[in-house]
């Protein structure tokens, strides 16, 4: 069973619908035991970083999520849920994240042509050694104003939006997707299936 962390963030239901469609057993839960005993933990998220951290704190989930990741449970953060995997974010002041992947969340630089938020479909360039190759040169759907700035070794895929924006990040068992796989058509479904495959085989290696 996949645990979708339930902390009152928007659009969790659409993620649930995508998992249901793929016949991936899942449950929305904020229960620490259920989260720690799940086959995989999915941390969704829409909205502001600080509000999300506060909502996780209120439910005493920060340590639970860290423990799950440190005990090598498969872990997938989506959109804001991916940003929460990093050390901190500069959105509305500096706020600490879960610190599961070294790096910082920064504002997408505004320049003349580009609109912020990045809203729409952008094309992924996926590292050749990544298990997520199925998304290479494929478009996925983004809605975000902040991005993860981290060492190249954690970047599995990126998109061009004036700067290179990491679209998939990975630190061993901890994976993050900046886009919404549940809103990215067949490519998004393929990526969720790929994650499920990695969970089943417990193989998060790059080769």
């Amino acid at each position: 069973m996949f645990a979708i962390v339930d902390y009152d963030t928007g659009n969790t239901l659409n993620l649930k619908k995508a998992l249901n469609y793929l016949n991936i057993e899942n449950k929305l839960t904020a229960d620490p035991d259920e989260i720690l005993n799940a086959d995989a933990v999915i941390l969704p998220g829409v909205g502001a970083f600080e509000a999300a951290v506060d909502a996780l704190k209120e439910r005493n989930l920060i340590e639970v999520l860290k423990k799950a990741a440190q005990e090598k449970h498969p872990f997938l953060g989506i959109c804001l849920g991916m940003q929460l995997l990093f050390e901190d974010s500069e959105e509305y002041g500096l706020n600490k994240g879960l610190d599961l992947i070294p790096g910082h969340v920064k504002a997408i630089p505004e320049n003349g042509e580009l609109k912020v938020p990045q809203m729409g479909w952008n094309e992924n360039q996926v590292a050749a050694d990544s298990p997520f190759k199925v998304a290479n040169e494929e478009y996925t759907y983004f809605v975000h104003s902040y991005y993860a700035s981290c060492a190249p070794k954690y970047v599995v895929a990126d998109v061009d939006y004036g700067i290179k924006i990491p679209s998939i990040v990975q630190n061993e068992n901890v994976v993050g997707m900046q886009f919404h796989p549940e809103k990215s058509g067949q490519v998004g479904l393929n990526l969720l299936n790929q994650f499920q495959e990695m969970v089943k085989t417990n193989d998060f290696s790059r080769n």
């Binding site: 619908k17 249901n20 469609y21 759907y141 549940e182 809103k183 067949q186 479904l189």
Partner: peptide
């Protein structure tokens, strides 16, 4: 629709 169609 959102149960079977996965786009915005």
């Amino acid at each position: 629709v959102s149960k079977q169609v996965f786009m915005p």
